[in-house]
Write a protein that binds this DNA or RNA. Structure first.
Length: 900
RNA sequence: GGGCGGUUAGCUCAGUUGGUUAGAGCGCUACGUUGACAUCGUAGAGGUCACAAGUUCGAAUCUUGUACCGCCCACCA
């Protein structure tokens, strides 16, 4: 056998994948410059955190993108998939802080500058790990355009955006209660503080009245904050309580005297009707406090310990010595005990409420009064909302669009300042001399107004304040680069639904605002990877699957196929981390099947080119129909149907169907039927081998292309073994077209299949040994069905393991099968047949059909059905009735003949 | 509290505008060393399509209700 067609008998993915990837890169196949077109297809990767290690979430996300981009590349479009990483402010800072904690230090010991340097060197060491891992699963990114959200270029874009928003009056300093993470020691945006429901308690606490006339009872979930209370409020509509308004109560523990006020924010009918007001530690209370011009004492340190602080410069003495420095939850426990002793605790009710958690460390977020930078969001959100409502941006699945819409309708200003050291420093400088505050594109040396010394804001920007610019900052903005010109806007954004608001929506804001164009027209949001208990795969649960393990064991193609094949639109993907063998069996088995089909086809492909010169163009033997056997016409028609459907599925992002369609074609139609049908021709037992080889090669070549997006490595390997393809690459091979629709051939071959199936069933039921041949007769043929049998006589004989096949009425002992179009088949089984069993089998089938038929006849006798159902439905039902009746007739005749 | 999904074979899921004998993969059973493949082949078992009512000639598919599961949003302490 010539060397070019030689494939190792054993499919071993690890041997082929890595070298192929290197070669693809060396040839620059993933660079848009490799093939220019007028309609580039562009995607930007959701940048993984720079400290990340590849997990199944990436495995899924990046495979989906690769499938899409490879599909578009094969369709002839110039493609660009921009890779990169995110500096991930909080997450990365936490990682490095943990590292230096092992050295017994914290970041303040080291100092800001040194700490930032430390993080930078950490990132320099490990930052490319994840990108290298993406190569192992075959991602066809243009690595020459790799970006990083904290590179100097990105920093310039961030500065530009900040200054522009500042100049437009869309950035302001806000004094309000924000979400504070006492572990990460920073404020968070609304989106970074996630709600979780908790079973908590509602504590009813007595506040004694100043005049000694009794007490009022407040209801709270957070007793420890009472030290920061500045009032008790009742609803003005709450008549019985109006007599308390204007009086004062004395706070337990610190004896502060606070007024009772009336405010309509107090919900009627909730709790005790008395609301304690803690302006510095509750956003509602802050607003009530503002309305009543109350102070706002802070009574918690940044790391959530009781202490006396105040932004108002007042207060002090609110936290008694015995509680000072105590953690908030410990304080709650202690204070509740104390209140019990003091007989100031009326009752504790169970109470379920939602508490916000830090999305990075899961610590319960503390509402905290502070000064932060905000982006005025409505002016940005309105156009983004309009774009959705106009249908300019589409979400898959659609319901995610409704979530997007709902979020935009209720959106609030975006807190963009973080009290971290790792991130883009806020480009605001203060002049203490002339009291100006200004945003600068370039670091200023002195105040441009008075020449005085400047002081830069200490905070850094939210990580998402750089990633929201990703679709254009990666292309060179704010410069008008050729890339920006050519590749913006991008086409499809593929990501997980978790970051719809954090990232996707904001990219739409920034794209519309700074580029005046949507950053992409389609947002594809795939599900989450979960284990068999439907828990999200995570490091902490230890239920993850390392994609690289899977690549090592079964290959990237098997991984990719399994994941994509299991990915229905809008559903999560469930994988069993305890049984990788079973989990990835579908992908591995299919790759193996493909490989072996390849071995068969390719071993004959070489003689094709030897016999017929260069491999025939797609027009042959397709144009010369006269030489095609029925099976050839059938498989070519099936193939083109498969091409059309696969294309359609990919266009509609029905990714599981896009793999399922060629899977079934390759396995069920091509391998199980066609290859078996042509073996006699392939091996020279029958004439027409050249045509069979040509058709087989054409089908195989085509299905390889259809599978290339999902299984890039194996398809490339097999593709190059096709005659004349030694130097070709499937990466840039044209996507096939499928115009043929030979319904006559499909119908005729289906009859052949039904005949073979019937014979096989009879054999299996009678327990005929696989090696033993039997004689079969068919009856009730029409000219058409007779022609079909004649056309594929050899196939039927082979697959039915027949010694003879003639047209005759049934006689003697044997098995009986009913075929479409009034035909029937009889297999003579002298002696071998168990009459009892055969009678039972036929009787069963007969009664099943009779039951169906009587239901159908009732339907056809129904006047209303005849009057209202569409004519084509009625016609179909009548055809069914005729064919079933015919089947029953032949079955009955057989039953009678057998003397059952 | 507001909004939105889901419930189909042991498991994971298809089922596109209501008309099929309700499908696939994995798993399971029986048989099989047939000129590529035992990571395979052939045959097969397995489902009252969550439950109830309704619309319709006809419902897994549409409507309403119930139960359970899940997602998004949320300043009733």
């Amino acid at each position: 056998m010539p060397e070019t067609t030689e494939l190792s008998p054993q499919y071993s993915p690890t041997a082929i994948e890595a070298p192929l990837y290197q070669e693809w890169m060396a040839r620059g196949l993933f660079k848009p410059e490799t093939r220019r077109s007028d309609d580039p297809f562009v995607m930007v990767i959701p940048p993984p955190n720079v400290t990340a290690q590849l997990h199944m979430g990436h495995g899924l996300n990046d495979t989906v993108q690769d499938v899409i981009v490879r599909f578009e590349r094969m369709r002839g479009r110039e493609t660009l998939w921009v890779p990169g990483t995110d500096h991930a402010g909080i997450a990365t800072q936490n990682v490095v802080e943990r590292l230096i904690a092992k050295e017994g230090k914290n970041r303040r010991d080291i100092g800001r500058e040194a700490f930032v340097e430390r993080v930078k060197s950490f990132v320099a060491e490990t930052g490319s790990t994840i990108l290298e891992q993406l190569k192992a699963i075959g991602c066809s990114c243009d690595w020459s355009r790799t970006r990083y959200t904290f590179s100097p270029e990105m920093s310039r874009a961030v500065r530009e955006v900040f200054v522009r928003l500042w100049d437009e009056g869309l950035i302001y300093r806000g004094h309000r209660v924000i979400h504070w993470c006492s572990h990460c020691l920073t404020s968070l945006s609304d989106e970074e503080a996630e709600h979780t429901e908790h079973d908590g308690h509602l504590y009813h606490i007595r506040y004694p009245l100043e005049d000694g006339s009794g007490h009022v009872t407040v209801a709270t979930t957070r007793p420890e904050t009472l030290l920061g209370d500045v009032a008790v409020a009742v609803n003005p509509e709450d008549e019985p309580k109006q007599k308390f308004v204007g009086k004062r109560v004395r706070l337990p523990f610190n004896g502060e005297l606070i007024p009772i006020i009336a405010d309509e924010a107090v919900e009627l009918g909730f709790g005790s009707g008395f609301l304690k007001i803690t302006p510095a530690h509750d956003p509602n209370d802050f607003e009530i406090g503002q309305r009543h011009k109350l102070p706002a004492p802070l009574i918690l340190t940044p790391d959530a310990k009781l202490a006396d602080l105040s932004l108002e410069g007042k207060a002090g003495g609110r936290v008694p010595a015995e509680l000072f420095g105590m953690d908030r939850f410990e304080a709650r426990r202690v204070m509740v005990e104390q209140l019990k002793h003091l007989k100031l605790l009326d009752k504790i009710e169970p109470h379920r409420n939602a508490v916000r958690h830090c999305y990075r460390c899961d610590t319960i977020v503390e509402p905290r009064l502070s000064d932060q930078w905000f982006v005025k969001i409505r002016p940005l959100a309105e156009p983004a909302l309009a774009a959705y409502r106009n249908g300019e941006v589409k979400f898959i699945p659609e319901r995610r669009g409704r979530e997007y819409e709902q979020w935009l309708e209720n959106i609030r200003d975006w807190n963009i300042s973080r009290q971290l050291w790792w991130g883009h420093r806020i480009p605001i400088w203060y002049c203490d001399a002339c009291k100006t505050t200004k945003a600068y594109r370039e670091d200023p040396s002195s105040c441009e107004k008075c020449g005085g010394a400047l002081r830069q804001d200490e905070d850094v920007l939210d990580t998402w304040f750089s990633s929201w610019l990703w679709p254009f900052s990666t292309l060179g903005w704010p410069d008008q680069t050729p890339d920006l010109e050519r590749f913006y806007p991008t086409d499809v954004l593929v990501t997980a639904p978790e970051i719809l608001f954090l990232w996707v929506a904001r990219m739409i804001f920034s794209g519309l605002h700074f580029m005046k164009q949507l950053p992409f027209h389609t947002v594809y949001l795939h599900g989450t990877v979960r284990d068999t208990q439907h828990r999200k795969m995570s490091k902490s649960l230890g239920n993850g699957i390392d994609p690289l393990d899977v690549v090592q064991l079964y290959g990237a193609d098997a991984l990719r196929f399994t994941v994509i094949n299991g990915l229905s639109v809008g559903t999560d993907i469930i994988l069993d981390n305890t049984d990788l063998e079973a989990t990835f069996a579908s992908g591995r088995n299919f790759a193996n099947k493909l490989w072996n089909v390849g071995r068969l086809v390719l071993s004959h492909a070489e003689s094709l080119s030897a016999d017929s010169g260069p491999r025939p163009a797609a027009s042959w033997p397709l144009a010369d129909g006269s030489k095609l056997a029925l099976s050839d016409r059938w498989i070519l028609s099936r193939l083109d149907r498969c091409v059309r459907e696969t294309t359609d599925h990919l266009e509609r992002f029905r990714l599981n169907d896009s793999t399922g369609t060629p899977y079934h074609f390759l396995w069920d139609d091509f391998a199980d039927w066609y290859l078996e049908a042509i073996k006699p021709r392939l091996y020279g037992d029958e004439p027409g081998g050249d045509v069979a080889r040509a058709v087989a090669v054409h089908c195989f070549d085509t299905v390889l292309r259809l599978l290339h997006p999902v299984m890039p490595f194996i398809t490339e390997t097999l593709f190059r073994k096709l005659p004349g393809n030694a130097d070709a690459t499937i990466v840039l091979a044209p996507w096939p077209a499928g115009d043929r629709n030979d319904t006559a051939a499909e119908e005729d071959f289906a009859f052949v299949q039904a005949l073979v199936d019937a014979i096989r069933v009879i054999r299996a039921d009678a327990g005929v040994k696989p090696g033993q041949t039997v004689a079969a007769s068919v009856a009730g043929l029409t000219a058409k069905t007779r022609a079909s049998i004649d056309a594929e006589r050899v196939t039927i004989m082979r697959l039915g393991k027949l010694s003879s096949l003639d047209e005759a009425a049934a006689s003697g002992p044997g098995g009986y099968g009913v075929l479409p179009a009034g035909a029937s088949v009889f297999v003579a089984l002298s002696g071998a047949i168990d009459i009892q069993k055969e009678c039972a089998r036929l009787g069963e089938e007969c009664s099943r059909l009779e039951k169906q038929l009587s239901a159908l006849e009732a339907k056809l006798a129904n006047e209303k059905f005849l009057a209202k159902a569409p004519p084509d439905v009625i016609a179909t039902e009548r055809e069914k009735r005729a064919s079933w009746a015919e089947k029953i007739g032949t079955l009955r005749a057989k039953v009678k003949a057998l003397g059952c």
